[in-house]
C-alpha cells in the first residue's frame, strides 16, 4: 500500500505534464512556436544524453553538436541515397553513436577530464569541416529533401503532427533515461563525478563507467540528430558548430543538473529564448548572454533547484543529534 502511494506520488507529475502538453497545439496556433517546441524536444534527447556524461559523470563534453550532426548526416544519407523509409534512418545513427562512443571515448576518457573537453571540441570542428567539404555527401549544400516519417500510412508533415510524434518519442526517452539514472549504472556515473578516487574501490571499472556514460550520450545525440534531419527535411554542416555544443551544455545546466525536470525546463526555455527576446533586436545576444551568466552565478543549481530546495525543507529528516 505504502509503495503504491509512493509510486503515485512519483508518477503523477509526469502524467500531468504529458496531458498538459497534449493540449498545447490547441492553445498555441502559431505554427512557428510549435516548430520551436518540436526543435526543443529533439534537442532534449541530445541533452538527456549529454546529462549522462557531463551532468552525472561530470566530464565536460563539447562534442554533442558533432555527434548530433553525424547522426543527422548518417540518417539523411542512408534514407535519401538508399531510398529507405525515414524511420530506418535511426539505425545508422545509433551505429554512428556507438562508434563515436568507443572510438573517441576510449582514448580520451582514460586520461584526465580536460583532454575530453579538448578532443570533443576538435571532434565537432573536424566533423563540421569534413561534412562541409566532402562533395560526395553534398558539400556545402548538405543533404536536401530528407523525407518525412510515415506512421501507419500517415505522413508526418505538419508541425502539429510532428509535435505529437515527438511527445511520444520524448515520453519513451524519458522513461529509458529515468530508468538508467535510477539504476546501478546511474549511481556509478554520479559516483564518478562525486569522488572518482573511491569508485574503483567499489569494484567499478572507472574508465569503463566513463566510456559507458559517453557512449550513451553519443547514441542519444546521434538519434536526436537523425530525428532533427526529418524535422527540418535537410541537413547542413553549418548547423553543427561548437556554438550548438555549448547551447546543449547551457540547456543542461540552466534547468538543473541530473534532474530530468531541470533538463526539460532548461531545454525548452533556452530554445524559446530567442523568440521571447526577439523584441530586443540587436541587443538580443547581449541580453541572452547576461541572463545565462546571471543564472550561472546566482542559481548554479539551475532553476529546478528552487523547487527542489523548497521540497527538501518541507520533507525534513532526522537531525544530527541522534548519533548512532
Amino acid at each position: 500500500m505504502n509503495r503504491i502511494l509512493q509510486n503515485r506520488n512519483r508518477f503523477a507529475p509526469p502524467v500531468v505534464i504529458v496531458i498538459a502538453a497534449l493540449f498545447v497545439p490547441l492553445i498555441i496556433t502559431n505554427s512557428y512556436i510549435i516548430h520551436l517546441l518540436n526543435t526543443a524536444m529533439v534537442y532534449l534527447i541530445a541533452v538527456y544524453g549529454l546529462n549522462f556524461i557531463s551532468g552525472m559523470a561530470g566530464q565536460t563534453n563539447l562534442g554533442q553538436a558533432g555527434v548530433f550532426g553525424i547522426g543527422a548526416y548518417a540518417s539523411a544519407l542512408f534514407v535519401t541515397r538508399l531510398d529507405m523509409p525515414a524511420w530506418l534512418g535511426i539505425l545508422p545513427a545509433i551505429l554512428a553513436g556507438l562508434l563515436i562512443g568507443v572510438i573517441l571515448g576510449y582514448p580520451s576518457l582514460r586520461v584526465k577530464g580536460l583532454f575530453l573537453t579538448l578532443t570533443t571540441i576538435a571532434f565537432t570542428e573536424i566533423a563540421r569541416l569534413v561534412e562541409n567539404n566532402w562533395q560526395l555527401i553534398g558539400g556545402a549544400l548538405g543533404v536536401k529533401s530528407v523525407p518525412n516519417f510515415f506512421l501507419f500510412g500517415i505522413e508526418i508533415k505538419t508541425p502539429n503532427q510532428f509535435y505529437y510524434l515527438m511527445i511520444v518519442v520524448v515520453v519513451l526517452f524519458s522513461i529509458i533515461t529515468y530508468r538508467i539514472i535510477h539504476s546501478k549504472w546511474g549511481r556509478a556515473f554520479i559516483a564518478v563525478r562525486d569522488n572518482s578516487d573511491a569508485v574503483p574501490s567499489c569494484g567499478i571499472n572507472l574508465a569503463q563507467a566513463k566510456i559507458t556514460a559517453f557512449t550513451w550520450s553519443s547514441v542519444y545525440g546521434a538519434i536526436a540528430g537523425a530525428i532533427y534531419s526529418q524535422c527540418i527535411n535537410y541537413v547542413n554542416a553549418s548547423s553543427f558548430t561548437t556554438d550548438l555544443s555549448i547551447l546543449f551544455v547551457v540547456m543542461m545546466m540552466f534547468g538543473g543538473l541530473s534532474s530530468m525536470y531541470g533538463l526539460i525546463i532548461g531545454t525548452v526555455i533556452i530554445t524559446l529564448l530567442p523568440e521571447l527576446l526577439r523584441f530586443l533586436g540587436d541587443y538580443y545576444q547581449l541580453i541572452y548572454a547576461l541572463i545565462v551568466m546571471l543564472f550561472a552565478i546566482f542559481l548554479p543549481g539551475g532553476i529546478w533547484s528552487i523547487v527542489k530546495n523548497r521540497q527538501g525543507k518541507n520533507k525534513g529528516g532526522p537531525n544530527h543529534s541522534g548519533v548512532a
Partner: peptide, 15 residues
C-alpha cells in the same frame, strides 16, 4: 571519500 550528492543509502548501494 564518499559520494557527496548521494544519500547514505545510495552510497552504500554503490558499494
Amino acid at each position: 571519500k564518499l559520494f557527496a550528492t548521494m544519500t547514505v543509502l545510495e552510497n552504500i548501494m554503490v558499494g
